[in-house]
Every structure is written in C-alpha cells, then in structure tokens.
Amino acid sequence: MSTPAVDLSELEHDALTELVNIGVSRAAASLRNMVGEQVTLSVPSVEVVSRKAAAILIHEREAGELVAVRQDFEGAFSGRALLIFPQSNSLALVKAVTGDELAAVEVEAMESEALSETGNVVLNGCLATMANMLRRPLTMSLQQVLRGDGALFFELAERTDDNGVVLFLYINFSISGRDIRGYIAMLMDLPSLEALKVLIGEFIERVMGVDDLGALA
C-alpha cells in the first residue's frame, strides 16, 4: 500500500472516529423511529487508504448485488456518503419503513422512493451532526438510488490506476427482528482530508482547551 501524503495523528484519528460515532448514533436513532425496531451499529472504522485499497475493501465486504442511497456533500470539506444494503434486503427494508401495511405489489412500486427517503434521513442526520460539531455548514445534494457493486457507487472502478489516497469510513448496521443489514460509508479525497484535519484540530482545541494540548504533547 502507498504511504498516505496526509495522515492523521492518533488524537485526530480518535476525534474523527468519535465524531462519526456520534453522527451515526443519532442517525441510527432516526432510523429506529422509521422502522420501529432497534438498530445495532458497529464501532466505526476510519482509514486513510489508497483508492485501490478502498475499492478492494468495498468489494471484499459485499460480493453480491447491492443497492445504495448516495448523497454528495460540499463545504469546507466535501465527499460522498452512502447507505448500502444487499439488494436482497431492500424489499424487507421498504416493508419495515412502510409499517408492513402495503401489499407486495405496492412495496415493489414504493421501493426506490422508500429507500431514497430512508437514505436521506440517515445520511443527512449523520452529516448534519458532524457539520455542527465541526462548526462548518455542509451542503447536501439530493439523494440518488444506485444499483450495482461497491466500486461503482464510489466511482472507483475507472480510477484504480490512481495512487491518490482517500479517507474511507464505514459502519455496519443491522435491524433487530428483521433480516436487514447494511452499512454506512463515507469517502473523501485528499484536499478534503487536509481541510478536515484542520477542522478536527480546531474541534480538539475547543473540547480540550489549548493548555491540555500542550500538556499532552
């Protein structure tokens, strides 16, 4: 693997993981309200990896057909957030968010719309919490429902010769009592990673106070 040009210090990595954790935890609570069942999350994984390695990570996690809700975000840092499920779980999710009241044919007709709305609630909730904690507004694009494999969602496939690094975040989730699992993923490129590193530094200073930082160094 190539050596990342921008790397996060241990404390920056810790702070970013905690920010993501808080954002995703709030988003999970919103998703819980939509599906009426407990949503279980994994601890977030935050890695700075080459694009190649990110494409491999995505491919290794899910080999089958996937469906994803994708939202791009822009601001002091920009990137792409996705809520991803195996295609085989998608109708179960639609049933869960529509309260099991629809006939099978209606569930199918509603699929894209229900997935899109679920993605919107989860991804917006997560990104808005992170933006607030970093004190920088983010503009979120309209969500898009995509089908295919992981490399396609991140548009990594055509750039696997690119040796640039990306910040790759992911969290697994599952819904109790339903056969639904998936993951939330975020990808940011190098300029965003540099900007984010500065904002994380400011965030750490705010929550810890500069004196303590001196004591830690």
């Binding site: 905690e18 954790n21 601890v43 929550v207 810890m208 106070g209």
Partner: peptide, 12 residues
C-alpha cells in the same frame, strides 16, 4: 470510553 478524546472531555 474507547476514545481518549472522549475520556479527556469527561475528565474536564
């Protein structure tokens, strides 16, 4: 807490 930063914040 697994986050050192979070432990520092609680400590403060």
């Amino acid at each position: 807490d697994d986050s050192k930063l979070a432990r520092i914040v609680v400590g403060k």
